[in-house]
């Protein structure tokens, strides 16, 4: 069954509500349910890291108020083509729907990353098998640093070895 709200994602939350004595059935996906503020049984209500995050995200909205309406509406229109999540849904839930959301919302993410992490670029581990060129580039950077340290210490033999290694890696990168 599809979600009756967005009509795109599978409905995972099914419930009945009685409003003014009238029975109503709801079939929602998790995204739309969260947006409507429906809580799943056993789910913690109230304050969570995601509420806090979405608070941070919504700051954008407040700042955007003073700006031309165009910029606000263009960000609302951001939508991940792969999973269908919109930027405004993301800013309410504080979670991405899939890895392509990072590309789809890229223009809005750097300020968020800076607020949460103080940085915008990954400097840590790179996957061994699929990290390919990035791994090589990181290795070259590391070797270059070592190279200049060796030169300063006048350890020219070791420096020459490093220089050759860097050339080798550079050739690999360019091929």
């Amino acid at each position: 069954m599809q979600c009756q709200e967005c009509g795109k994602r599978p409905a995972t939350l099914h419930y009945t509500k009685i409003i003014n004595g009238e029975k109503m059935e709801f079939h929602l996906c998790e995204v739309c349910a969260k947006e409507k503020g429906e809580q799943m049984a056993g789910m913690e209500a109230g304050f969570s890291i995601h509420n806090l995050l979405s608070g941070l995200l919504n700051l954008d909205g407040q700042f955007a108020e003073g700006q031309p309406a165009r910029s606000a509406s263009s960000s609302e229109g951001l939508r991940c083509k792969t999973c269908g999540l919109t930027y405004s849904q993301f800013s309410k839930i504080g979670r991405f729907g899939c890895s392509d959301c990072y590309k789809a919302f890229a223009e809005r993410l750097d300020p968020l990353f800076r607020r949460v992490h103080g940085h915008t670029t990954h400097r840590g581990k790179v996957p061994e098998r699929t990290g390919g060129k990035l791994r090589i580039r990181r290795e070259i950077e590391r070797l270059k640093q070592e190279l200049s340290a060796r030169i300063q210490k006048e350890e020219f033999e070791e420096a020459a070895r490093l220089r050759d290694r860097i050339r080798e890696l550079q050739a690999k990168l360019d091929s």
Binding site: R95, F96, Y102, L109, T121, H122, K125
Partner: peptide, 12 residues
Amino acid sequence: FSETTGYLTSCP
């Protein structure tokens, strides 16, 4: 995995 953002996770 993204070269700039690293391992991509559900929560930022």
